[in-house]
């Protein structure tokens, strides 16, 4: 590089330096430190002691670790597809020319604006086994609803149900993508006599596939890291730890049991799981995604 280029390079670096410093101090250093701590017996108060891979080995024999992992994967496996389909369905409906369209859009988006704590408190009452609105509604159908919050078979479905309430976020992204699909594609399909379903299947879906992919990846990451709702609603994990999720158990180890080293190791295992699933999703969908620019 010439002198001039060097100078410009350093000027550029200078300008982005606030970000670089922030990144180094608040992201890279903690991330790096957490790798080191994951190989240590570390309780925050005293200096970390190197113990090799013992934290990782302990995870294999820690039943609660496996239970929290199973709970989390179950939650992700059910809530993710449901959430993706429901958000798309609502977005498609809201994309039709109906009366009060902006009003409906607002209503469906609203739940994702409610603070997590507030919505969790509301759901605690909706799901109450005796006075809950949900069981009250079910009673009209002649169904005696379960004790959603205290029966171990129903705690995870409760959280899944609650997560579906917050599909507004991905719905809005779908909606933006749906409005971007060129009209002329639909028009020419109509001339060829395509049905609504055919149009949806062969025009809409391929055209919004990058957004589908985006929502899938964000959904995988988000659902594996689920923390606030189960933490508020079930605290220590509910009956028989049936609603103890990975991030909650990680938090318990880090901040309640002073096992920061173990918690760091858990965080890295979660990172690897998410990395693997994201890679799998990317590989699996690569052929089916259409980018207009390519």
């Amino acid at each position: 590089m010439t002198r001039r280029e060097w100078r410009e390079f350093f000027t550029g670096i200078g300008f982005i330096s606030p970000w670089i410093v922030g990144f180094l101090a608040f992201v890279l250093y903690p991330v790096g430190a957490s790798i080191y701590y994951s190989f240590c017996d570390y309780d925050v108060l005293t200096r970390p002691v190197w113990i090799g891979t013992l934290n990782y080995q302990d995870m294999f024999t820690d039943e609660v670790f496996w239970k929290s992992l199973r709970n989390t994967l179950y939650f992700a496996a059910v809530s993710l597809p449901f959430g993706l389909v429901l958000a798309l369905l609502v977005a498609v409906l809201l994309n039709q020319k109906v009366k009060m369209r902006p009003g409906f859009r607002t209503i469906y988006f609203l739940p994702s604006l409610v603070p997590v704590v507030a919505s969790a408190m509301i759901w605690l009452w909706i799901l109450n086994g005796r006075f809950g609105l949900l069981n009250y509604a079910l009673s009209f159908l002649g169904v005696e609803g379960p004790n959603w919050l205290s029966d171990e078979n129903w705690t995870k479905p409760s959280i899944i149900l609650m997560s579906l309430w917050g599909v507004g976020g991905s719905m809005v992204i779908y909606l933006a993508a749906l409005q971007d699909v060129p009209r002329e594609l639909y028009e020419s399909a109509e001339i060829d006599g395509a049905s609504s379903w055919t149009k949806f299947r062969h025009i809409t879906i391929p055209m919004i596939s990058p957004v589908l992919y985006f929502n899938l990846i964000m959904g995988i990451i988000g659902s594996l890291q689920v923390f606030a709702q189960p933490f508020i609603m079930f605290g220590g994990g509910g009956t028989n730890r049936s609603a103890l999720f990975y991030a909650v158990y990680l938090y318990q180890n880090a901040f309640q049991y002073n096992q920061m080293g173990y918690a760091c190791a858990m965080a890295w295992v979660l990172f690897i799981i998410i990395l693997f699933l994201t890679w799998l999703a990317t590989k699996g969908t690569r052929k089916h995604i259409y980018y207009a620019g390519e």
């Binding site: 205290s150 171990e152 220590g236 994990g237 009956t239 028989n240 730890r241 318990q252 309640q256």
Partner: peptide
């Protein structure tokens, strides 16, 4: 205390 709470829960729920 957490472990005992889980145990009490399992016992109470006949699990």
């Amino acid at each position: 205390v957490d472990e005992m709470t889980v145990a009490a829960d399992r016992i109470f729920n006949l699990l």
